[in-house]
Amino acid sequence: MTQLAGADALSALDPVFAQLAVGAGHNLWGLTHLTMREKAFVCLTADLCHPHLDLPLAMHVQMALANGVDAESIRELYRHLAPYVGYPIVVPAFQRLIELGLPEAEDTEAVKPAPLTGPLARAVRDLEDVDPGLAAFSEDQLAQRWARPHLSVRERAIACLTVDVFYQTFDESLRLHAELAKAGGATDDTLRDLLCGVAEFGMPRAWAAARALRL
Score class of each variant (00 low, 15 high):
154 R>V: 11
114 A>L: 04
97 L>P: 00
158 I>Y: 02
67 N>T: 12
38 E>F: 12
49 C>N: 10
53 L>G: 01
65 L>Q: 15
127 L>K: 02
84 Y>Q: 15
101 G>M: 00
108 T>E: 08
157 A>Q: 07
133 G>W: 07
52 H>S: 13
101 G>L: 00
126 D>Y: 10
104 E>H: 08
93 A>D: 01
99 E>Q: 08
152 S>M: 05
67 N>C: 09
97 L>T: 00
50 H>M: 13
78 Y>T: 07
47 D>A: 14
132 P>T: 01
137 F>S: 14
99 E>W: 00
153 V>D: 14
154 R>S: 12
64 A>E: 02
92 P>M: 06
35 T>R: 02
142 L>N: 15
86 G>Y: 09
35 T>A: 05
107 D>T: 05
135 A>D: 02
48 L>E: 02
67 N>H: 14
105 A>D: 02
50 H>K: 14
70 D>Q: 15
82 A>G: 14
114 A>C: 09
76 E>F: 08
142 L>D: 12
106 E>D: 12
103 P>L: 01
154 R>P: 11
54 D>H: 12
158 I>K: 12
144 Q>T: 11
121 A>Q: 13
149 P>W: 07
39 K>F: 04
132 P>H: 00
60 H>G: 11
94 F>V: 01
78 Y>K: 07
50 H>E: 14
129 D>G: 10
60 H>T: 11
133 G>C: 06
122 R>C: 10
40 A>Q: 03
35 T>H: 07
88 P>C: 10
133 G>T: 06
113 P>D: 00
128 E>Y: 05
88 P>L: 04
111 V>D: 07
68 G>W: 08
74 I>C: 02
147 A>M: 07
60 H>E: 13
51 P>Y: 04
128 E>C: 02
84 Y>M: 15
57 L>I: 00
44 L>W: 04
150 H>R: 11
110 A>H: 01
69 V>E: 06
70 D>A: 14
45 T>G: 09
142 L>K: 14
52 H>C: 11
83 P>I: 01
72 E>D: 11
145 R>E: 05
79 R>H: 15
128 E>A: 03
106 E>L: 12
58 A>N: 03
90 V>T: 14
138 S>T: 15
137 F>V: 15
156 R>I: 03
136 A>G: 02
90 V>N: 04
123 A>P: 06
53 L>K: 02
93 A>P: 02
123 A>T: 12
102 L>K: 01
69 V>W: 03
112 K>Q: 14
71 A>F: 01
54 D>P: 06
